Simulated assay, not measured.
Amino acid sequence: MSTPTQSAIIWPDKFLPGTTDNFVSNEIIVKDITVTQIWEQLNDISKWQSYYRNCDQITEPKTGPRLQKGDVFKFSTFGLPVLTCLVEEAVSPGPGHAGRLAWSTRLGGDTNEKIEVYHAWLVEDLEGNRVRVMTQESQIGEPAARLATAKPNRMLLGHQDWLDGLVKAVKGEEIGETNLESV
């Protein structure tokens, strides 16, 4: 029996995990849902607040709520000011290939406040009627270095909430309490 290969995030060299100040990876594998169902929730930013409570002040791109490469959108998360994000990758899942969504953003200011971020998603079918959903984020800057050593890791917990909420939304389940509410 051959071992199936799982897809991986395509990282710009600047954000390669292990070379940045902070990196977080979250993944979930779920049975009896489809990549199409996940993609419909993930790629439509007008739906994010319905299943991810750690975001608000969403401004859709001029092209509408479905993200496309080159789009610019805005949102606030983790109590940060509104972030202006550039969609770096937006590939719908299809037969034999994973869905990919990634954006970059940066906050200016002095050295203590400056941060650059690359956030990526991957959704793919697995054998046995399963779907893999992964999100990873790589960050550069002093605020990122501080986040990397914080306990509990709020970014890890927040991104897990995003994954869990996404799957619950697809299944039609109530979102309920989040990991961040207990921190």
Rank of each mutant, 00 (worst) to 15 (best):
V82E: 09
L107G: 09
T77Q: 11
L80C: 10
S25P: 02
L42A: 03
N43K: 08
S92H: 11
G18K: 11
G141P: 02
L16V: 06
L80V: 09
L166V: 12
C55L: 11
V170I: 08
T111V: 15
T3R: 12
F78E: 06
L126D: 03
A120Y: 00
C85T: 07
I28Q: 10
K168F: 05
E113K: 15
S104G: 13
S138Y: 03
L101D: 02
L157E: 02
G99L: 06
T111P: 01
K69Q: 12
Q57A: 15
E116W: 05
A145H: 10
S182A: 14
D32G: 01
F15M: 06
L180C: 05
L83E: 09
D125H: 14
I38A: 09
T59C: 07
E40F: 05
D13P: 08
A120K: 02
S2T: 14
R130N: 12
G96C: 04
W103H: 04
L16T: 14
Q139C: 02
V82Y: 02
T77R: 03
L80G: 07
G176K: 11
E181F: 07
L126N: 03
I140E: 03
V30T: 15
H97R: 13
E40A: 14
H119V: 04
T149C: 05
Y52Q: 10
R106S: 15
K47C: 09
K47A: 11
C85H: 00
V133N: 01
D161Y: 04
P95A: 14
G109T: 02
E124R: 01
G128N: 13
P17T: 08
G79P: 02
F78Y: 12
D13A: 15
G172A: 11
